[in-house]
Design a binder for these strands. Structure first.
Lengths: 188, 188
DNA sequence: ACTTGCATGTAACTTGTTACATGATTTA
DNA sequence: TAAATCATGTAACAAGTTACATGCAAGT
């Protein structure tokens, strides 16, 4: 059982879901493709952590809804008490910064601007999630609490990223902005 | 050529390094083990992106220093101009928050406290990096600039994470703090 | 005596991505 | 008419982790 499997198990524990549902819901926090999720769900059913039933739909394709079993819930509880592993981030931008000195102002600005767009999109997404739920802050113990602080986690992270982008864009001179003095110095 | 390979190539472009050096330097930004790095460096040498030479050492084991080739530099330049991919984060904590309602206050607090320690450690690390380099802010174009904003990236991210932890710890009631009224309500 | 750091590598395995495969309905 | 959404799955491949393997020097 890997971390993704536990995550899926936990989501099913909250509400019965199809693989497709789970994929969409988990995407913003853990980038997993359907080709990874479907086999995991099958294996978890074999291990008796999940049960499934087919739901016929008229307009859309039929779907397989998964629910958690008693055994699944026990395993889930154990996981929640086990040691928490450190987050893993792999960001191409970090690698590129090691050799940023190889690029011109324009290239560097383009890169950071692209990342800025990414964060703005994420902020939009998380804010729309917040807007589509009860106004009052949920209290600990309710299922809404976990979801609320999860959204806050994404939001605060994206805002920090945006701030960084703006700081950096402020530090890279726009081309054509170089002063006469600097040009003279760099031409030596 | 994967992202990690480009990252290593970029680091070698800055200064000649051994696989061991690269592993240590890249760790805080991209968690790669030596068992992944060594074969990548070998393959990049085969492709004529890197060249290597053995350095004998008396007190420590000998080491293989890699330098970038002309061809390597060209490939690196191309990469810097190509499309930047989105960052990928896999955080067990995010998955756990989906089913936080399964745990008690104590378990939840422990989890967040553990994460808080993680961020405090990272902040310490990045601040020590800042302290061990020239006081004045580097300007765009110098190799120090990229490294400076990379450290800032890690720092701002870790600070945002810490802030989130503190917000959440403030929202989870400490056990024994529950009011009489709440106890009566929850006992129904 | 034991562990940590330095230093390099391979083998077996797990995890994650891309591509293949199907097919109806809705929207542009 | 083309693309996107819904919906499930498999196969081949790439990326990343864990374990195995060696060995010396310095510190605890």
């Amino acid at each position: 059982m890997n971390l993704l499997s536990y995550g899926l198990l936990g989501m099913v524990a909250r509400e019965e879901s199809s693989g497709y549902d789970l994929m969409l819901k988990i995407q913003p926090y853990w980038q997993a493709k359907h080709s990874q999720i479907y086999p995991l769900l099958s294996r978890m059913e074999e291990k008796n952590l999940l049960s499934s039933r087919w739901i016929q739909q008229s307009d859309k394709p039929d779907k397989k809804m998964y629910g958690i079993t008693e055994h699944g819930r026990e395993i889930l509880q154990e996981w929640m008490l086990s040691h928490l592993s450190a987050p893993v981030t792999r960001d191409e931008l970090s690698l590129r910064l090691f050799c940023l000195w190889l690029t011109e102002e324009e290239g560097a600005r383009r890169m950071v601007a692209e990342r800025k767009r990414h964060f703005l999109e994420r902020i939009d997404y998380f804010e729309s999630l917040l807007a589509s739920r009860p106004q009052h802050t949920p209290t600990f113990g309710s299922p809404e609490f976990g979801e609320f602080i999860l959204i806050q986690k994404g939001l605060m992270n994206a805002r920090a990223g945006l701030e960084w982008c703006q700081m950096v864009l402020g530090m890279i001179p726009r081309e054509g902005t170089t002063s006469l003095q600097e040009k003279l110095v760099s031409s030596i």
